[in-house]
Nucleic acid binder design. Structure first.
Length: 272
DNA sequence: ATGCCTTATTTCATAAGA
């Protein structure tokens, strides 16, 4: 069984490339992030012609996650219990419907596919360590940890995939010096990943396919992909029951090439 | 210094990404 996760940076802008990639890679389960479209506008019919069921969670212009599965798609969860919403900077106009309540963004969708509990996750970016977005990012991770911890009491086969917006180690960024003072590499963010792993989740590190680094993201600007100036921020965290079945894992960097790519490449995992 | 590029939208300009 082939499992993949891919931040597509707009599923509608990427649709021709997504369909082409699905036909070539033939994944059974696909976790998508940054679909950037409401669930009602997700191109479910198009991917359906390739044999996939779809579950989508979207809130418009930003964010958006989805699951595609050719091996069943049941028990869909839009978001996770206790998932926080972005509260804004002090004094910033509220993004909420009711005082005291915060609206979660479309950053998580879960389902049971092929006997595995699968989550497609898109962690908040964080922007800068001093911003409210950063505090929100850490809060979101803490709530995710709690929700996954609850699920793991009854779900031995679980995988949490997606764009975590954190590079686990300095080896996961092209130049650690460039990132000093930036998000994605701070100790609290890396601790949030460690806390997830402490639940019993293992980091399934992919093979880079070219070069020494299994990067999954390269900025569009300044020829970063050509220079392999990337980051590994798209992760597959699997329980032992799933990790023990891993036969191969790789970054499909071919999908980052050519005309109109996402700025992220898919991570593909083959399970026995 | 800050864009470098790409996206969707309250579009010929902006916010966001990481």
């Amino acid at each position: 069984m082939r499992l993949a996760t891919w931040n597509v940076n707009s599923v509608r802008a990427r649709l021709p490339r997504l369909l082409e990639w699905l036909e070539e890679a033939k994944p059974d389960i696909v976790c998508l992030q940054e679909t950037k479209c409401p669930a009602a506008l997700f191109p479910a019919a198009e991917v359906g012609e390739l044999g996939y069921e779809t579950a989508a969670h979207g809130d418009g212009r930003w964010n958006g996650v989805a699951l595609l599965s050719a091996v069943g798609l049941e028990d869909v969860s839009l978001g996770f219990p206790g998932e926080p919403g972005y509260e804004g900077e002090p004094g910033e106009p509220a993004l909420i419907d009711e005082p005291g309540l915060r609206r979660p963004e479309a950053r998580a969708i879960g389902a049971r596919c092929g006997g595995i509990r699968v989550w497609s996750l898109y962690a908040p970016n964080g922007r800068t360590p001093a911003s409210a977005h950063y505090a929100y990012k850490l809060e979101w991770f803490a709530a995710l940890r709690a929700a996954l911890g609850d699920e793991l009491t009854s779900e031995p086969a679980l995988v949490a995939c997606g764009d975590f917006n954190v590079a686990p180690t300095d080896a996961d960024v092209w130049d650690p010096a460039v990132f000093i003072g930036s998000t994605h590499v701070t100790p609290p963010e890396r601790q949030a990943l460690a806390d997830l792993r402490a639940l019993g989740l293992q980091d399934v590190v992919p093979t880079p396919m070219k070069g020494p680094h299994p990067f999954t993201y390269w900025d569009y600007r300044a020829g970063m992909f050509a220079k392999d100036n990337g980051m590994r921020i798209d992760l597959v965290y699997a329980t032992e029951a799933v990790a023990a079945r891993v036969r191969a894992a790789y970054v499909d960097r071919e999908a980052r090439k050519g005309k109109g790519p996402s700025d992220h490449a898919p991570v593909v995992v083959d399970l026995s």
